[in-house]
Design a protein around this nucleic acid. Structure first.
Lengths: 267, 267
DNA sequence: GGATCTTGTTTTTCTATGTGGGACGATAAG
DNA sequence: CTTATCGTCCCACATAGAAAAACAAGATCC
């Protein structure tokens, strides 16, 4: 399930049930749905039509338009695939945030040094939005996607993003979190940890968001000292025992400082 | 058939004159045009409407749909910007090609070592398509974009991509090239150079594609020995005199071999 | 401080637009 | 050869979406 939207918004077979939520531009939305279906693995018209709930002819026309505009590619025996225009726009979107560009070289050095998966993210609405990802060199890879949103309160990266907020806001974020069970701490425990994190300027995630995944994260500040982004170093628990997390802390803090300084932070 | 020349698709003020060339899905195309307009710098409805040739209300509906689907973002005082969904799809499109993923670390090392702009590309139809770009650390940056297409015959990267083809095909590619004037070599000279390049397994671009820009490029081969991609190291002429190009040649060839080997090339 | 631009948002009317059924020609499978 | 399955093309009809205009909310001017 690549599509975990909270709104059902399931475009079924044109049923005018009056469920609302269908704003205005059907054709455009269907076209975009095709893009996502292809990203999700659909490769032929049949698959796409099934996802969209449209007939082959309709699907074909939309897909053909997308191919013509280079948003998709089509190869006779291979089917549809994401096209070069998405490469371009994605790259542009990434470059649009100065943080990504500035942070990249620093994160690359960090990646080379530690071999773990590194994420860069910002706060968008009430979510942590991943802007960049540097895959690790471990056997097991963290399955996350650039452009994806993760809950703020449970991820190391998310917690780093809200490190400067007051306790009332913190409570707000904790309330947003769906009870993941298992490793999810209750409010009191979580707040206590957040206070510690804020004092240290570093956050941890000890399998709170995803079992077996741990990470160390730190906020990135701009010239005004405000937190504009954060990055995290993630690995599975076997590579991330308490000792290693301690060890990483210093490096992570240092890299965060270096990036922030490049953004004009007096430090 | 599906891939004809780029239609400018300039939909002027609703002219139903029937000039033909009207593909099919207007709404979708307009939506995509909005994405590109935003990528091109348009930030408000007025600007977008001007580019599309539609009224504000129409533009707004499309833009709102794109925002809702996270293809665009909108901030009250900032205007529209490319959204996280494009990050995600762009990243996916990039990952779809195994070459990009395999080549990345190698190219990063190369980038760190030489400081010049590095491009990775493949052959798409009759063009060199840029899959990845690692910006250089020079004062002047090469203005190229991931997802963009460049002529094959004049770029170092393009020439590396067709290094294995026979001379008849080479002629075909040379014929495609628009007479850029100035540094453009005639067919005989160009073929002669290509023969040399093919013998050396390395190609050069001495300001043939873009004045002041030079580069050294090499092909990347897969397990079967076929050229599946190529990369180039580019810089302005002041950083790329003959001596430097000679020096780079060895390194570039080595990196190309390393990447090819990672792809299963026996080498 | 109120008048007046200039933004983005919403509503309504009407027709151009896009839909889906079905036909066609490949190519692969039985 | 026949049959199933692709992508592609065509066309009549109804519906989706374009545009005009009203609305709301800041910003800007005087």
């Amino acid at each position: 399930m690549w599509d975990d939207k909270q709104m059902p918004a399931k475009p079924s077979t044109g049923q005018p049930g009056g469920d609302g939520a269908a704003p205005g531009s059907q054709t455009l939305l269907r076209g975009l749905a095709i893009l996502e279906a292809v990203a999700g693995g659909a490769r032929d018209l049949a698959g796409l039509s099934a996802v969209l709930g449209t007939t082959r002819s309709t699907t074909h026309r939309l897909a053909a338009a997308l191919v013509e505009q280079r948003y998709l590619t089509f190869a006779p025996r291979e089917g549809y695939a994401l096209g070069p225009k998405l490469l371009e726009l994605g790259f542009r979107a990434q470059q649009a945030s100065p943080v990504t560009r500035v942070a990249r070289p620093h994160l690359e050095r960090l990646s080379a040094a530690c071999g773990d998966t590194i994420h860069l993210g910002v706060l968008e609405e009430d979510w942590a939005l991943y802007l960049d990802k540097l895959p690790g060199r471990r056997r097991i890879e963290i399955s996350s996607r650039v452009g994806e949103r993760q809950p703020v309160w449970s991820t190391g990266l998310g917690k780093a993003l809200i490190l400067d907020l007051d306790e009332a806001r913190w409570r707000g974020f904790h309330r947003l979190g769906p009870a993941r069970g298992a490793h999810s701490p209750d409010l009191a425990t979580w707040l206590e940890r957040m206070r510690t994190y804020a004092r240290q300027g570093i956050t941890y995630d000890r399998e709170e968001n995803e079992p077996e995944v741990r990470c160390v994260a730190a906020p990135i500040r701009d010239a005004g000292g405000a937190i504009v982004a954060a990055f995290s170093v993630s690995s599975t628990v076997q590579y991330m025992d308490e000792v290693r997390m301690e060890d990483l802390t210093g490096t992570v803090r240092e890299v965060a400082r270096a990036i922030s300084r490049d953004l004009g932070w007096p430090g």
